[in-house]
Computed example of a mutant assay.
Amino acid sequence: MARTIDDYKIKWVRPVKLPSIDPRQSGDLGLNVSVKPTDLKVLYDKSKELQDADEIVKKMFTLEFQPRKEAKNLEREKVIALVKRHICDRASAEVKIAAMTTEIQYLQRHIAEQRRNIKFKVFLKELIDKRKKFLKYMRRWDYKRFEWILERLNLIYVPQPKIAGKVSRKDALRRLTKDYCDGIIQQKLDIFRAQLKEQQKVFFAQKVKNLEYILAEEKKYDLNPTVSEKEIDVARKKAEELLKETSPHHLSYLIPYAKIHLSKKDITM
C-alpha cells in the first residue's frame, strides 16, 4: 500500500513563471501592419499642397526624418482602421482596444531593449489590465464581436486563473494527489458498472427462459396464466440489447456465465 506521494509516482515540476507584461502572458501574437520609413506621417498623405511639392519637401515629411512617435501614430491609425465601425469612429470599444493594443506592443518592444525601465513596465502592466477589462466586458455582452476583434487584432484572451495566489509545491501536490485518487475511484466504478452489465445479461437471459417455462407449464395443466407473452417479449428485447453491447477484455471471465441457462429440473414451482 502506498504511504507517501513518492509511492504514487506523482511528479510535479514548477511551471515557468512569466511576467504579466510578457507577450505570451498578455496574449499578443503581433499585428500584421507594415510601417515603412518612406511612408508619410499621419494625415499628410491627403495633403494637396504636399502632392504638388518638390521631392525633397515630400521626403522631409516621411517617417525617416520624423520622430519615433510619428511611426507609432501611423501604426495606431492603421490598426484602428481594421476595427473601426465608420470613418469618424474614435470612441467605440473596438477602437479603444485597438489603440491600447498598438501601445502595448510598442511598449513590449521597447522593454525588450531596455529591461531596467521600471516606469514603462508599470504603465504597460496597467494598460494590459485595462484592455483585459474591456475584452471581458465585450466577451460578456457581445461574444461574436469579441471573437471578431480577437481575430482582427491577432490576440488571445487570457482570463484570470481559477485558483488565485502564488503557485506552491504543497498545494500543487495536494491537487495532483486528489486527481490521481479520483482517477482510481472512477476506474473502479467503471469496472463495477461493466460487471453489473454482464450480470444483467445473465439475469435477463435466465428470466426469458424461466418465463417461457412457467407459461408452458401453466398451459400444459390448464391453469390461469400468470405470465403473458408481452412480458416475455419485453425481457427478450432487453436481453438482446444487452448482448449487443461488447464485453470489455478485462471482464472476459464473465462471458461464460452469460451462456448459462436453467434446465427444467433446476426450477422448483
Rank of each mutant, 00 (worst) to 15 (best):
L251D: 02
Q187H: 09
E217Q: 14
L251V: 08
A53K: 03
I267D: 02
H249I: 10
M100V: 00
R175L: 08
P248H: 06
R76L: 02
K259Y: 10
Q186A: 15
R116T: 11
G165F: 07
V122N: 11
D182V: 03
K209Y: 01
A164E: 14
E55R: 03
R68F: 04
K265R: 14
K11C: 04
L223V: 06
K201V: 09
V208D: 11
D45L: 05
D190M: 12
K121P: 05
K17T: 12
I104N: 12
Q195C: 06
L127H: 07
M100W: 09
R169G: 00
K238L: 01
E245G: 00
K188W: 05
A239D: 08
D54G: 07
Y106F: 06
D22N: 15
K136Y: 02
F203D: 03
V16L: 14
D266R: 00
P67G: 09
T101C: 09
L18N: 05
T226I: 12
L189T: 12
L107G: 03
T246Y: 00
S168R: 14
T226M: 12
I163A: 04
L43V: 01
R236E: 15
I10Y: 12
P225W: 02
V57Y: 08
C88K: 15
R169Y: 06
G165S: 08
K130G: 07
E55H: 07
H110I: 02
Y143W: 08
R145D: 08
Y221H: 10
K125W: 07
I97C: 04
I149E: 10
Y180W: 15
P37K: 11
D28K: 02
R174D: 11
I80V: 15
F61R: 15
L29W: 14
W141S: 12
A71N: 03
L155K: 04
I184Y: 05
D54S: 15
A205D: 15
C181A: 11
K84S: 06
L124R: 05
R236I: 07
K237C: 04
Q108D: 13
D190E: 10
H86I: 03
P37R: 08
W148I: 00
L155A: 11
P19W: 01
K119R: 12
Y253M: 08
L254I: 01
Y44I: 08
L176V: 03
Q25H: 05
K48R: 12
K170L: 09
E49Y: 07
S20V: 09
D6C: 00
R169T: 15
K58M: 13
E240G: 04
V16F: 13
G183Q: 07
K259G: 01
T102C: 14
Y143R: 14
K48E: 15
R140T: 13
